[in-house]
Design a protein around this nucleic acid. Structure first.
Lengths: 346, 346
DNA sequence: TGTTAGCACTCATTTGGTTCGAGTGCTAAA
DNA sequence: TTTAGCACTCGAACCAAATGAGTGCTAACA
């Protein structure tokens, strides 16, 4: 049986309706639609075919039909077109970034907020990931007794620092020399590779006190990548307003799954490699997410993709709109961040 | 009508039962209790009195009675005794802190987790507040072109730093001089007062470029106090398992109220001044919290109270147990943090 | 051959009435 | 002052019938 044009249109109509109403759609509903000039009986036949092909499901005999996940897959792959945003909406997004957001965390937080409040789903944004960023400069700065700051300036213009302990008796000029060697050897390495690089010169310099440096570099590396804490979440409660979560048990399970950000972190982390991705229901790896859909996109700082953002919603999510919003907001975020870091870089 | 011993005992029995079952308790239930040798009829009379006095309420004629908020107030003020923790539980808490928690944030997070998982309510912990801490040392460290770090060492041994922009052309030795002056003038000031202190010497040094320093100090000050982001929340979903939140609307309202941490932050912030506080239902200032109870306590670093922790639960919360847990966990937290900072101070 | 009207059938949901039982208040006796 | 007894209340649980949205199938039609 072929999935001809007519079946396609009917399927689309069913999906569109179901996304809107969340209740099984019957043949009459479709037959009355302006674009479709067929009787309900004909639609019924077509629906029966579509069911046989696996695109529709019937909760019970005397109800309408609902799209299967296979149908959503088809829908996002070939039927759906990205919804156009209203000028007003674009302006709204613009305005959200125009206020004084001077820290990266604030921008990320604001982005998550915009995304969730415009989609009415749950949104998440991953803080910029510095693991893949190249190092430009490293400096150890003595601070009081036996302590120092390791400061790293990266290629993207982002600077990070963390406090370390240094062996007592180490002089500022020693630290200065170590800084030089580190910069020389680690320049253009990525943060991820810090630990892998072997630096023989330091053996002499440190005279067996290498451990302190190892520990320091590790702390530093950790501070570059916030892990699950780097996930900003917003609109978690939006999900509770959808009928798929009117069951308290499901609601709890969902909220539980997102409370510790681990699952979301791994989701977003993987997503940092692909410009867009849509994962529907059971396609999700993590069990508690298997009756949601997740849409992710990446954002960039300059030319390199540095993190990702995502929307979690019910499977009958308004994919067209979400995609359009993600697209637009992702670009805005990229622009704002790039701008921010450019300024830092001067 | 007097609240004699017998009424007191009956009221206590009712509250204890209601806390356990969440359903109106009837006269027979009480009369069958081992400690009480009265018929249900007598209890009924007493209950009727207690209702007249405002300690009990009747959802409808043919149901049992539930304690009023006035009753809970009486209960926590005079009837309740702190529950004793099991040795096993104390050990559990101990164990939670023994693992390698090397950062303050991790300790705070862990504390919130322990608190919520042992109470089965929602818990929150406020990150140490540095506003009231005395400054010991300030240093500006040049980092690359036109940028510097302001590093502050405080009396409690906590060090913080933040990145600032400095006017181009400012020399390291100039920064060094500024550091000296700042340290001299701000030593023993609290972080809160940084902005208020006027430093005439700097006028000469900076030659009209004062703004950069003002901006820097402001950034620094902000970084000392995380605001709402400094609230660690845990167990938000625990609330959903209590019948008072089986209504989805209420559940949403609650979760919404705690999603942005603002309300919780102001709650905990105020709580930092009082060693313990119990706020019951409508006593809460913020509307969405008015059908919860909130128990807070402070924790200390060394001798100064630096933050607070709290538990949010239904009004029929197990106050005795929560108080005992808060007490114990609060002390553990204080000990761990004090230890941490002492070490930093060496 | 594809489309449609008609009709019997299915089944979740709604509605209304009944029963059940936990609980009360009141009264009268101990 | 306490208690047994009894009439009364009212939510919850249960059941049966009515409702209605929807289907599948068949036969007629273009």
């Amino acid at each position: 049986m072929a999935l001809d044009m007519r079946k396609m249109r009917i399927l689309q109509a069913i999906i569109d309706d179901y996304i809107l109403t969340a209740s099984p759609v019957g043949s009459r509903t479709i037959s009355k639609l302006p674009g479709i000039a067929l009787s309900s009986a004909t639609i019924r036949n077509e629906m029966s075919d579509l069911e046989e092909m696996g695109y529709l499901e019937q909760p019970h005999t005397s109800a309408g039909r609902i799209p299967s996940e296979k149908a959503y897959r088809l829908y996002v792959n070939s039927i759906m077109r990205q919804a156009a945003l209203l000028e007003e909406e674009k302006r709204f997004i613009q305005d959200c970034y125009s206020s004084t957001l001077d820290k990266v965390d604030e921008v990320v937080k604001q982005t998550a907020w915009v995304l969730s409040s415009m989609t009415k789903y749950t949104s998440m944004v991953l803080t910029p990931q510095l693991q893949a960023v190249k190092i430009r400069h490293i400096q150890l700065v003595p601070v009081g007794e036996g302590r120092a700051l390791v400061v790293v300036v990266t290629d993207a213009g982002i600077t990070r620092d963390s406090l370390i302990n240094v062996p007592l008796g180490m002089t500022p000029s020693q630290l200065e020399r170590i800084s030089h060697i580190l910069t020389e050897r680690l320049r253009n390495c990525t943060v991820r590779d810090i630990r892998a690089v072997h630096i023989p010169e330091l053996q002499a310099e440190l005279q067996g006190q290498r451990e302190f440096l190892d520990a320091s570099l590790e702390t530093l590396q950790k501070s570059m990548d916030a892990g699950p804490d780097g996930v900003q979440l917003s609109g978690a409660t939006n999900m509770l307003s959808y009928p798929e979560y009117s069951d308290m048990g499901k609601a709890r399970a969902f909220l539980n799954a997102i409370e510790t950000r681990d699952v979301l972190y791994s989701l977003l982390n993987e997503a940092t490699n692909v410009e867009f991705s849509i994962t529907i229901g059971a396609e999700n790896k993590s069990a508690p997410m298997q009756d949601c859909s997740v849409v992710t996109a990446t954002y960039k700082v300059g030319d390199t993709s540095m993190g990702s953002l995502g929307v979690i919603g019910p499977v009958r999510m308004n994919y067209g709109r979400v995609l359009a919003l993600m697209n637009h907001i992702g670009k805005s975020l990229s622009a704002v961040l790039t701008n921010m870091f450019d300024e830092e870089r001067k």
